[in-house]
Measured scan of single mutants.
Amino acid sequence: NQASVVANQLIPINTALTLVMMRAEVVTPMGIPAVDIPRLVSMQVNRAVPLGTTLMPDMVKGYA
């Protein structure tokens, strides 16, 4: 099973992602693959992402 990107903290809307905000976890359903974490750094979320939420492609501006 491939790990997905999960929020390590509450990420407010329009926040630029940093490594500290994300962790890799095997979850269902799968979200953004953990291998993409370096690519996500400095991209912004388009909604508030609660702690423990799996990041989906439509939550990150410019990802999809």
Score class of each variant (00 low, 15 high):
Pro38Ala: 09
Ser42Gln: 06
Met21His: 09
Ile32Leu: 11
Arg23Trp: 04
Ala64Val: 12
Val26Ser: 14
Glu25Pro: 00
Gln9His: 13
Met59Glu: 03
Pro12Glu: 09
Arg39Ser: 12
Gln2Tyr: 14
Thr54Asn: 02
Met30Gly: 06
Ile13Tyr: 11
Ala24Gly: 15
Thr15Ile: 06
Asp36Ser: 08
Ala34Arg: 03
Ser42Leu: 11
Leu55Trp: 01
Pro38Gly: 10
Asn46Glu: 14
Ala7Leu: 04
Val27Ser: 07
Ala7Pro: 01
Asn1Met: 15
Val45Tyr: 00
Asp58Pro: 11
Ser4Thr: 11
Ile37Asp: 01
Pro57Ile: 07
Thr15Ser: 10
Ala16Val: 10
Thr18Ala: 07
Val26Arg: 05
Glu25Ser: 09
Ala64Leu: 12
Thr28Gln: 15
Ala7Gly: 03
Gln2Pro: 10
Gly31Glu: 01
Val5Asn: 01
Val41Met: 04
Leu19Cys: 03
Gln9Arg: 09
Asn1Pro: 13
Arg39Leu: 14
Val60Glu: 01
Leu17Thr: 00
Asn14Gln: 10
Ala3Ser: 10
Ile11Tyr: 01
Ala16Ile: 10
Tyr63Thr: 05
Ile13Val: 12
Leu51Thr: 14
Val6Ser: 03
Val5Pro: 01
Ala24Lys: 13
Asp58Lys: 11
Ala3Cys: 04
Leu17Ala: 00
Ile13Cys: 03
Ala48Arg: 13
Asn14Trp: 08
Thr15Ala: 08
Asp36Leu: 07
Leu55Ile: 12
Leu55Tyr: 02
Ile32Met: 05
Gly52Ile: 02
Thr53Leu: 15
Ala7Ile: 05
Asn46Ser: 13
Leu17Lys: 00
Leu19Pro: 15
Val26Cys: 03
Ile13Phe: 13
Gly31Lys: 01
Met43Ile: 04
Val45Lys: 00
Leu55Asn: 00
Val45Asn: 03
Ala24Ile: 15
Asn8His: 09
Ser42Gly: 14
Arg47Ala: 07
Pro57Trp: 08
Gln9Asn: 15
Met30Thr: 09
Ala3Thr: 14
Met59Val: 15
Val6Phe: 02
Ile11Ser: 00
Val6Asp: 00
Val20His: 07
Met22Asp: 01
Asn46Cys: 03
Ala34Met: 15
Leu40Asp: 00
Met21Gly: 04
Gly31Leu: 01
Met43Gly: 04
Met43Arg: 10
Gly52Ser: 08
Asn8Glu: 12
Tyr63Cys: 03
Thr18Phe: 04
Ala34Ser: 13
Ser4Phe: 03
Val27Cys: 03
Lys61Cys: 03
Val27His: 04
Pro33Cys: 04
Pro12Ile: 08
Met59Ile: 07
Arg23Ile: 13
Ile37His: 02
Thr15Gly: 15
Asn46Pro: 03
Ala16Pro: 13
Val41Gln: 13
Leu40Val: 06
Asn14Ser: 09
Thr53Gln: 08
Asn8Ile: 13
Leu55Arg: 00
Thr54Asp: 00
Asp36Tyr: 06
Pro29Glu: 08
Leu40Cys: 03
Asp36Ile: 06
Ala24Pro: 07
Thr53Gly: 11
Asn14Ile: 02
Leu17Ile: 06
Val35Phe: 11
Gly62Met: 14
Gly52Tyr: 15
Met22Val: 15
Met43Asn: 04
Pro29Met: 06
Ile32Ala: 03
Lys61Leu: 15
Thr18His: 10
Ser4His: 01
Gln9Ser: 11
Pro12His: 07
Asn1Ala: 13
Asn1Glu: 13
Leu55Ser: 00
Thr15Asp: 04
Val45Leu: 13
Met43Tyr: 07
Gly31Phe: 02
Leu19Arg: 08
Arg47Pro: 03
Gly62Cys: 04
Pro57Ala: 15
Val27Gly: 03
Met21Arg: 03
Thr53Met: 13
Ala7Ser: 14
Ala24Val: 12
Leu51Gln: 08
Ala16Phe: 11
Met21Ile: 04
Glu25Met: 14
Met30His: 13
Ala7Thr: 12
Met30Trp: 12
Val26Pro: 08
Val35Trp: 07
Lys61Asn: 14
Asn8Pro: 02
Gln44Ile: 15
Val20Tyr: 10
Gly52His: 07
Glu25Gln: 07
Ser4Val: 03
Pro33Gln: 15
Met56Asp: 05
Met22Ala: 00
Glu25Arg: 05
Leu10Ser: 13
Val5Trp: 01
Leu51Ser: 15
Gln2Met: 12
Leu19Gln: 08
Glu25Thr: 09
Ala7Lys: 01
Glu25Phe: 07
Asn8Met: 15
Ala48Trp: 14
Val49Lys: 00
Met43Gln: 09
Gln9Lys: 09
Ile32Val: 13
Asn1Asp: 13
Asp58Gly: 12
Ala24Ser: 12
Asp36Trp: 05
Arg47Lys: 15
Met22Lys: 00
Arg23Pro: 01
Lys61Tyr: 15
Asn14Glu: 06
Pro33Lys: 10
Met56Pro: 01
Gly62Pro: 09
Ile32Asn: 01
Val26Ala: 09
Thr28Pro: 02
Thr54Tyr: 02
Ala64His: 09
Ile32Phe: 03
Val60Asp: 01
Thr54Trp: 02
Pro33Asn: 14
Thr18Asp: 12
Arg23Met: 07
Met56Leu: 15
Asp58Thr: 10
Thr53Ala: 12
Met22Gly: 00
Ala7Gln: 01
Gln44Cys: 04
Gln44Met: 14
Glu25Cys: 03
Val41Ala: 06
Tyr63Lys: 02
Met21Val: 04
Asn14Asp: 07
Gln9Val: 05
Met56Ser: 08
Val41Leu: 11
Val60Tyr: 01
Val20Lys: 06
Met43Asp: 04
Val41Trp: 04
Leu19Phe: 07
Tyr63Phe: 13
Gly31Thr: 01
Lys61Thr: 10
Thr53Tyr: 15
Ala34Cys: 03
Thr28Gly: 08
Thr15Gln: 09
Gly62Ile: 04
Gln2Asn: 10
Arg47Gly: 08
Ile32Gly: 00
Ala3Trp: 06
Thr54Cys: 03
Gln2Val: 13
Ala64Pro: 12
Pro57Gly: 13
Asn8Gly: 09
Gly31Met: 02
Ile13Gln: 14
Asn46Val: 13
Ala3Met: 09
Ala34His: 09
Asp58Gln: 15
Gln9Phe: 10
Met43Cys: 03
Ala3Tyr: 12
Ala3Lys: 10
Leu40Gln: 00
Ser4Ala: 04
Leu55Asp: 00
Gly31Ala: 04
Gln44Lys: 14
Asp36Thr: 08
Thr54Gly: 03
Met21Asp: 07
Ala7Asp: 00
Gln44Arg: 10
Met21Tyr: 07
Ala64Met: 13
Arg23Gly: 05
Gln9Cys: 04
Met59Leu: 07
Met22Asn: 00
Ala3Gly: 08
Leu40Ile: 12
Ala7Phe: 01
Arg39Asp: 05
Met56Cys: 03
Val45Asp: 00
Pro12Cys: 04
Ala48Val: 08
Ile32Lys: 01
Ser42Trp: 11
Arg39Ile: 09
Gly31Val: 02
Val5Phe: 02
Val26Thr: 05
Arg39Gly: 12
Pro38Ser: 12
Leu10Thr: 07
Met56Gly: 08
Val60Gln: 00
Glu25Ile: 06
Ile13Gly: 12
Leu10Ile: 14
Pro12Leu: 09
Gly62Trp: 05
Ala48Met: 11
Pro50Arg: 10
Thr54Lys: 05
Thr18Leu: 12
Ile13Leu: 07
Ala64Ile: 13
Lys61Glu: 14
Val6Gln: 05
Val49Ser: 02
Pro57Arg: 07
Ile32Ser: 01
Asn1Thr: 08
Thr28Trp: 10
Asn46Tyr: 12
Ala7Cys: 03
Asp36Lys: 05
Asn14Ala: 10
Thr53Asn: 12
Asn1Val: 12
Ile32Tyr: 02
Pro12Thr: 09
Gly62Gln: 10
Ala7Tyr: 01
Thr53Lys: 09
Val35Arg: 11
Ile13Arg: 09
Arg39Asn: 07
Glu25Tyr: 05
Thr18Gly: 08
Tyr63Glu: 05
Gly31Arg: 02
Ile13His: 09
Leu55Cys: 02
Ser4Met: 02
Met21Leu: 05
Gly52Ala: 10
Ala48Leu: 09
Val5Asp: 02
Val49Gly: 01
Gly52Thr: 03
Pro38Asn: 14
Val27Phe: 02
Val6Ile: 08
Tyr63Ile: 07
Pro29Tyr: 05
Arg39Phe: 11
Gly62His: 11
Met59Gln: 11
Pro38Arg: 05
Ala16Ser: 11
Ala48Cys: 03
Pro50Ile: 06
Val60Lys: 00
Pro50Lys: 08
Asn8Val: 09
Val49Tyr: 02
Gly62Ser: 12
Asn46Trp: 10
Thr18Met: 12
Met30Glu: 12
Ala34Gln: 08
Asp36Pro: 01
Pro57Thr: 05
Arg23Val: 11
Gln2Arg: 07
Lys61Asp: 13
Pro57Asn: 08
Ala3Leu: 12
Gly62Arg: 07
Val27Pro: 01
Thr18Lys: 04
Gly31Asp: 00
Met22Gln: 01
Thr18Arg: 05
Val41Pro: 03
Ile37Thr: 14
Val27Ile: 09
Asn1Phe: 08
Val45Ser: 05
Ala24Asp: 07
Arg39Cys: 04
Thr18Gln: 11
Val60His: 01
Met22Ile: 08
Ala34Val: 05
Gly52Cys: 03
Ile13Met: 13
Gly52Pro: 00
Val27Gln: 05
Ile32Thr: 02
